[in-house]
Design a protein around this nucleic acid. Structure first.
Length: 565
RNA sequence: CGGGGUGUAGCGCAGCCAGGUAGCGCGCUUCGUUCGGGACGAAGAAGUCGGGAGUUCGAAUCUCCCCACCCCGACCA
């Protein structure tokens, strides 16, 4: 491809609305442009990278036994109503009504569509196992699109759905995907950290996320220093020390604490460690109030809480509800004396001795609060978020935190969709069975951004060979017509040899060409300059290396082929 | 949605506080000299100053309303 006939709007300066490195580089290198918030147009160069990534994904999916399909983006509301998600998906699902009043969604995900497809084409256990996938656009009305392509309203996803006759089959399908995912990301030149994850509102049990470590990651990961336990903080468990403090129990006393409402306030007021306090937070789950009690320094983990309660909807209570439950305004809630409201204690709470809690009375807290005496722990669960320094649930060693970008996620879904949508077939005994599902997603553009995020230097992008938009970047520095013709010959030689070449044939200064080459980041740069016109040798430089190798024109193609072997 | 911020030429910005009719750098066009790490000179083209309303003799500048975009929090590939 000749640059003079290509569209390659590289930018010297950082666009003002791009705060994140990959976003800046993708804009500057002319890979894409913003259409509006959370929506991006891919230019030819960017599209080439996307195609490389989807190519790798397809190869690995096919190898793992999955088959490519293509579903409509517009999905009939009836199927969503069958699964129940027309109501539970919430406002992140774009909904459309046609001229006849029929409702559709712009597909945010395709469990329903694939389940519907499969039930229309299978009739026997012999049709399984079945794993179908597609690569197409997903629409999600994100609360806040950000980081360029990393969180957008419209994005390309590879989504696969496995259907098996029994749990063993699902385990096999899932493991095949787990392996395929590792291969895909490795081939894309991405270092990923697979972690245990929460399944969220997708339903199902086991799930694993593929994370790319990054400062701009929106996920917090907890990683064990010793045994390899790795989990998303939404899911991460941690071992609690079962040290029982032997201090004698003090008397329960009301303490005047005017205007002291938060744990921070309490720490300042009492001048002591935050774990002396028990944090009592009121939630509303599926319309009912709920009190949750965790140690003062801990955060309530709403994912764990949601899983524990099985709640469809879980929100912090309004001040009015808080007052209704505790009889006091916001800031003075505590478990002592709470009746007629479900109270869930984190498993750490039972170790508390002489704790401080809200007194359920305006401007008062209790001191000397002791579980078992002042309140009963009728329901306890792991509902607090693990953090750096906590003990690994497997081996007890200390865990550390890392931030990550989620590029892939695989789930064992279970029967949620096959049951609700009545997908069933006959087994070998002639009995009706309901197949079990798994689902497996990869954010394709996000993967691209993550590759950029992980492969760059101060000059620009450094594409891994496997996903680079072109094999080589030919820089011609010709002054005369003869020289131009000589470089054209090299260009044609490369084209004829089946090498993807971006040929910078612009009549501009070499400095600009080199700077653009570094910015765009094609792995190999070939310069046809002075040396070429005198001795016939071309300069070969790897984007990631410093040294330049001189190669005679007749060895050039072999050299490039060697490099890409 | 809550909090913070920005909108002036294709891009990056100044001008706004103290109203007087829009400027700088890069890019772009033409010519010349250059040309292996973002060259130089000369001459040019290009702006509904995000939109609307208001105040005023006069608004990029002051007031009000709206919109878009970015950043921080709750969703997810």
């Amino acid at each position: 491809m000749r640059v003079t006939k290509y569209i390659l709007p590289t930018l010297k300066e950082n666009p003002s609305d791009a705060a994140v490195l990959s976003h800046r580089l993708m804009l500057r290198a002319g890979l894409m442009r913003k259409e509006s918030a959370g929506m991006y147009a891919y230019l030819p160069l960017g599209l080439r990278v996307l195609r490389k990534i989807t190519g790798i994904i397809k190869e690995e999916m096919d190898r793992a036994g999955a088959h490519e399909c293509l579903m409509p983006e517009l999905t009939n509301a009836d199927y969503w109503k069958e699964s129940g998600r027309w109501n539970t998906m919430g406002p992140e699902m774009f909904r459309i009504t046609d001229r006849n009043g029929l409702e559709y969604s712009l597909g945010p995900t395709h469990e329903e569509a694939f389940t519907n497809l499969v039930r229309s084409v299978v009739s026997s256990y012999r049709d399984f196992p079945l794993n179908l996938y597609q690569i197409n656009t997903k629409f999600r009305d994100e609360i806040r699109p950000r980081f360029g392509v990393i969180r957008s309203k419209e994005f390309i996803m590879k989504d696969a759905y496995s259907f098996d006759i029994d749990q063993n089959g699902l385990d096999e399908s899932y493991n095949a995907m787990a392996l395929a995912y590792r291969r895909i990301f490795e081939r894309c030149g991405l270092e990923t950290i697979p972690v245990q994850a929460d399944s969220g509102n997708m339903g199902g049990s086991t799930s694993e996320e593929f994370m790319v470590a990054s400062e701009i990651g929106e996920e917090v990961l907890l990683l064990c220093e010793k045994c390899g336990y790795r989990a998303n903080s939404e899911k991460a468990e941690y071992k609690r020390a079962d040290v029982i403090n032997k201090t004698d129990a003090d008397e329960l006393k009301e303490f005047h604490t005017p205007g002291v409402k938060t744990i921070d306030d309490l720490v300042k007021f009492f001048r002591c460690e935050d774990d002396i306090f028990l944090k009592s937070i009121i939630y509303v789950y599926d319309g009912k109030p709920l009190m949750v009690v965790v140690p003062g320094s801990r955060e309530v983990n709403e994912h764990k809480l949601k899983n524990h309660t099985g709640a469809l909807e879980l929100n912090l209570a309004t001040d009015a509800v808080v007052e209704e439950v505790t009889g006091a305004p916001f800031g003075f809630a505590g478990p002592v004396g709470i009746k007629n409201t479900r109270v869930i204690y984190d498993v750490l709470v039972k170790n508390a001795v002489n704790a401080v809690t809200g007194a359920n009375r305006k401007d008062y807290h209790y001191t000397g609060v002791n579980p078992g005496r002042d309140f009963m722990i009728n329901e306890e669960a792991d509902i607090s978020t693990a953090r750096a320094g906590d003990a690994c649930p497997k081996c007890g060693a200390s865990m550390y935190e890392k931030k990550g970008i989620e590029v892939g996620h695989i789930f064992k879904l279970g029967y949620k969709y096959t049951k609700s949508m009545n997908l069933s077939v006959l087994d070998e005994k002639g009995e009706t069975v309901t197949p079990i599902m798994g689902c497996y997603g990869i954010g394709v553009n996000r993967t691209m951004a993550a590759v950029v995020e992980q492969n760059n230097d101060e000059r620009g992008i450094i594409w891994p060979k496997t996903v680079a938009p072109f094999h080589v970047h030919l820089v011609g520095i010709a002054k005369s017509e003869e020289e131009t013709a000589a470089v054209d010959k090299i260009y044609n030689l490369l084209l004829d040899s089946g090498i993807d070449v971006l040929f910078d044939d612009r009549k501009t200064s070499p400095g600009i060409k080199f700077a653009d080459a570094d910015l765009i980041g094609i792995p190999l740069r070939i310069t046809a300059g002075k040396g070429f016109f005198t001795s016939g040798e071309l300069e070969l430089k790897e984007r990631c290396a410093k040294d330049i190798i001189n190669v005679p024109a007749d060895k050039l193609v072999d050299k490039i082929r060697d490099y890409y072997k």
